[in-house]
Structures are given as C-alpha cells and as structure tokens.
Design a protein around this nucleic acid. Structure first.
Lengths: 291, 291
DNA sequence: ACAGATATTCCGTTATGTGGAACGGCGCTG
DNA sequence: CAGCGCCGTTCCACATAACGGAATATCTGT
C-alpha cells in the first residue's frame, strides 16, 4: 500500500532553481509537496490522483512527459496516461506531441476565484498598481495571505530586466516579504502565532528568523503603517508594502520593489500608502468578498 | 443511461445576464456547455465528472451548494458531494459552511499556463498595457485567440465605473471584438474559414454577421494594421486593436476600449500600434512559447 | 545496430466509485 | 405549529470502471 518513492529526476529539479516555499520545516528539500497537507496514508481516489498530476506541473519546467509526470505524482505510468487523457479531454492539460502542459481551461477557471472576478480585488486594484508603477518606475505587487505564505495576485512592472521573478500565482513565505509583514502586522495574534510556530524560514542572510525580533518588527510595522523588506527575501531586492484594510480586516497588501540603494524610499513609501488606501476605498464600495 | 436533463435553476441563470459566448450556432441558449465539445455519449469517468463540477462554476454566481452543482453538472447529489470532497482536499474548491467556491489551487495552477509564466506573454505585456492605459485613460486589454473565441489574458483599466465587464479569463466571440478581428486578419485562411463556418454570432446591431462583409473587413484590417470595433460587441463601447506578431505568427492582440464618441481614435490608434509592437519586440527577445 | 529511454495498448482482477434511499435540519407557508 | 419542500450529509449493496503489471511500439542518441 505504501507508495513507491521513485523521485529520481523530481529531486533533481527540486535541488536547483528557486526552492519551493512550502518546505518550511521539512527536512528533505524535496519536490513540490503533495496536494494534501497531512501525509497520513489516505487512500488515493481517482480524482485525487488526477489533481496530483496537475500539481506536478509546479516547478520550473512547463512541459512534461507521461513518465516524468507519473514519477512526480507517484503513480504507475499507465494510470498517469489514462488520467492525463481525461484531463486533456476537459482542456485542463494540452499536449504538443508527447509533451503535456497546463491547459487553457485551468486559466479560465483560475481566473474566476473570488478575488479575480469582475469588481473583485484584482479588478479594483489594477489601476492603482499601474499608477504606482508609472509614478515610481518600480515593480508593483498585489498579494494575499494564505496560511504562512503570501500568494501574488497581480504585478505591474517594467518588463525587460526581469529582476523580480515573482509572477501572479507564485507563493513566498510571508515572513520574508514586505507584503507578508504588512498583512501579518494587522492580522489577529492567532494567525501570527501560527506563522511563527510554523517556523520562520531563511531565504537570505537578512531574513528575520528569530521569533522575538519578528514580533517586534510586526509591532513597528503596525505603528508606521508600512512594512519594509530589506533584502530579506532576495538579495539585491527591497520593497515597501502597505496593507489593504477594509472594515477592519486585512484582505491584501500592495508593494513596490526595487534595488535597495539608489531608490528614494521615503517618496516611494507615500505612493504605496496612497495606492493601498485607494484600493481599500474602491474595494469597500463594491462589497464583494475575498478568498 | 441518458443523463437526466434537470436544468431548472441552471436555465434560469443562463437566461439572464451576459449570454455565454459558446452558444454560437446552438439553438437552445442553455447553461455553460459541458467541457467535452462533442456531446457524443462518452461514458463519464470519475475525474471527468469532477472537472465538470468545476466547470459548473462558470456563470455569474461565485458560490454554489451541492444540490445546485449536482444539477448543473448533471449527476446525483451524493456523487457530487463525494467529488467535491476530493476537490476540496486538493484546494481546488473551498467552502464557507455549505457553499462551495473555486479554490486557490486553481488560481495558482491557472497562473502557470504557458502565457502566464515568468517572461511569458503576460509578464512581457503588462508594462505596455499599463502605459497604454495611462497614456489614453482607456481600458487596455491583452487577449489570445482560441478557436472562434477570444480569451482575455490581462486588463488594465480605470476601475471605478466598470463599463467594461470583461476580466482576464473571459471569452468572447472573436468576430465581435477588435482583438479578434486583429488576430484573425493575420491568421491563416484555414483558421478564418473555421470561424466563419462556425457562424458569426450577433451581439449588437453592429455585429458583423455576414461572411462576405466579415472577410472584407479582415482585408481592411490587414491593410491598415489595426482593427476597429464599433460597438460590435457591446453597445456604448468601441475599441482599436493591433496584433502582436512574432516571427510572422500572431500570438495575441492588444486593444484600448472606450466610449465611441468623444474619444480621439486616431491618437489612440497610434498608442495601440506602439504598444503592440513593443510587446512583439520584447516577446521575441525571450523566445518562450505561447499556448 | 544497439541500449535505454520513452509513449501506448492490453487485460484479468478487484478495489472503487456509484447512486438510490434514508436521515436530520432549516426556512418557508398555510 | 404542523406540514411541506429543499437542503446537506451519511449509508450501503452492487457492479462498474479504475487499476497497474507486463507486453509492445516508438524514439533518441551513440
């Protein structure tokens, strides 16, 4: 009954590139973890396996073959093959020859989760992000908090020199980002405790990994209303972030990222503040709800 | 064996609001059609049903109960219930109490389809869209062509008075949009024929539904390099669009939409042209591939 | 030509998904 | 307040449909 381990080339990719953020406290830096959080030996249902197959597309390579997918999802090739057939029929994966890639249906449905809908968070925020970008020349981000992670929702940037590798849909540990700190500073203690207890991961030498310091940092953020990230997530990249608060609850955060030096952060800070409050106001007007 | 029809409240929603674009030549304006295009009686696999369940979330209502979902997907309640459990475990749906909504995993994966990846079409185009928006004050759109439909990929707009209801992930018949005409004008005759033969749907009194006129229109677009939409998709809304062409192939289009009158379209046109060619150049530099 | 990696098909076995029926709770309305 | 109708949820006997090992076909590089 125990699933064969069989993670040859999966492990190979996991080692290189950007380490997947989920491995907070897990000893082996393995491939993107399985979809179900608790690794209890729950019997795999048919659709569970199919979804696992989709999840196997996290990682850097956009196109994968049957064998590789089967390996990553931990199932026999023939099973993977059949399930991929089902997924393809529904447009959740597409294939060029023998290689599979994520399909358009996934994008269409993924664009319908709460905060993406018309008048949702993203729709309301895009204008503010755009302005923040043109006023500052920096990369503007919108993100939400999900557990101990930050999930990027939208991004407006200068394009060419892709310093910032994040992209909508990406995940990063909340404690290593200005976005995350801005949101946590205005979240309930229960949520903060959860994050701290999960362990504060180190991504650079500047990452705050000591609980006491982290809590003090959050207090400072709460007082000033903005959070600074001083190369805590990526060396060579800093940012200011401000929370989007509506009816007393943080629902998201906005940030501007750029090189640590040679940027007039005080000026940027006021732009970010302004953008965040603009989004708060605009969002409050069309009371939809977020994730 | 024949699936019970049972579309009581499904039909109710289908009738109101924006008609789903897929009903090109289909007689009954029913609910968002099933995922598999050919309605041949293919036996439903377990995952097929689960995906159908996800597809049931198209339509305007973001949160649905088990019964409603079962009805829309055409399956017994108990089956829907179990499958929703599987989907929830994987984060593809989430629930507040008894209501289900699309889950974050869907957004995360949907944000990894080809054109969303780092240095993909969307990443490269967002800056141009943002500039197009601030220079013109209009809504800037990026879309790709999928069969006879246009699928919106990104949008930068002014927010408040939500004239334009489209949102990333939305579909519209290609023939009724500037975006669609811009792409079709530079596509192979095979593709154009396919679209024409599928039938040119009417969305407003200005929609071009006569094949001859449509082909002539495309020729004009090809000559001028830009496509105008004169309230052909939505009354009170016009736009100019230009194709994004790389290595001789159209991969997308960019448009600026606004009120038909009181807008200096010639000026807008040049901005759109510029944006499209900027994206073409930027995209050509990082040879990734599109959907 | 060969080795090793793929993708794809086949098929006997049985685990797995199935869906009707029954239960308990909620919000109507007569 | 009892009745009705709809809801979400659970149960269970049945047989279908998912399973996965092994065989085959196809490809790629040397």
């Amino acid at each position: 009954m125990t699933r064969p381990v069989n993670n040859s080339s999966a492990a190979r990719e996991g080692a290189g590139a950007i380490p997947h953020p989920h491995l907070h406290a897990a000893p082996p830096p393995e491939f993107p973890v399985s979809l179900c959080p608790e690794p209890e030996d729950r019997q795999m249902t048919s659709v569970g396996k199919a979804l696992e197959l989709l999840a196997a597309f996290r990682g850097t390579v956009p196109e994968l073959g049957v064998s590789e997918l089967a390996r990553r999802a931990g199932m026999p090739k023939s099973t993977a093959f059949r399930l991929l057939g089902d997924l393809e029929r529904a447009g959740f994966v597409a294939r060029s020859g023998a290689k599979y890639r994520l399909g358009l249906s996934l994008f269409e449905l993924g664009s319908r989760v709460g905060f993406c809908r018309p008048n949702g968070l993203r729709d309301v925020a895009i204008h503010a992000l755009s302005e923040l970008h043109v006023h500052t020349g920096l990369t503007a981000h919108l993100a939400i908090l999900e557990g101990a992670d930050v999930v990027y929702v939208e991004k407006v940037h200068a394009g060419n020199p892709a310093r910032v590798v994040t992209v909508p849909g990406a995940r990063l540990p909340a404690s290593c980002t200005g976005l995350g700190k801005a949101m946590l500073a205005f979240s309930s203690v229960a949520i903060v405790r959860q994050v701290v207890e999960a362990g504060l991961p180190r991504r650079t030498r500047n990452s705050i990994t000591e609980p006491g310091r982290f809590v003090r940092e959050l207090r400072r953020v709460r007082e000033s209303g903005v959070a600074y990230d001083r190369e805590e997530g990526t060396l060579g990249l800093s940012c200011v972030a401000a929370p989007v608060i509506v009816e007393g609850r943080v629902i998201a955060a906005i940030s501007a990222s750029g090189p640590p030096h040679g940027t007039s952060w005080p000026r940027i800070e006021s732009h970010v503040r302004q953008a965040a409050s603009a989004v708060s106001k605009a969002y409050a007007m069309n009371m939809s709800e977020v994730s």
